[in-house]
Amino acid sequence: MPVGRRWLLVAACLLLAGCGTAEDAAISTVQDARSAVVVAQQAVRLRLDTRATTPYTQVVLDDSLDAVGAAEQELRDSSEPDRARTARARVVLNDANTVLDELADAGADQMSKADLDRLTELVGRLDAALAELRR
């Protein structure tokens, strides 16, 4: 009897897992990257205002770079059927990776107004890509 109950529980869990909605990988990965880039942009802005410490800003840049890397990996692993959408997402994720990689490499103490502008412009590109993917 307890064994029967246990199988019932396993079956219920599998059923529940099946109910979990499969999300659109192109949108969700770009969204994750956007979230990370926005935080990096905020941290650099605060750093330029001398409101954030250098080590803190560096950690945010590194974390954001990691998050974008994870989003790229997730997109590669996904079984998104639409190639055009995947390609669109991949391009903009790659942009984000390049910018964050350069800034994280340069170091938080080297940030300038130009770097902040780059990040702001990058957020704009991610937003545009999201709007396009959602259409």
Binding site: S35, V38, V39, Q42, A43, R51, Y56, V59
Partner: peptide
């Protein structure tokens, strides 16, 4: 900003925004 928290650095970002370096260091 549409940011969903996934790291500890994001948890303390509002503190830097509000109180600057001194408050940020205190919170850390």
């Amino acid at each position: 900003l549409g940011v969903e928290v996934t790291t500890l650095s994001q948890v303390v970002l509002p503190v830097a925004e509000a109180g600057g370096r001194v408050l940020l260091i205190a919170i850390i």
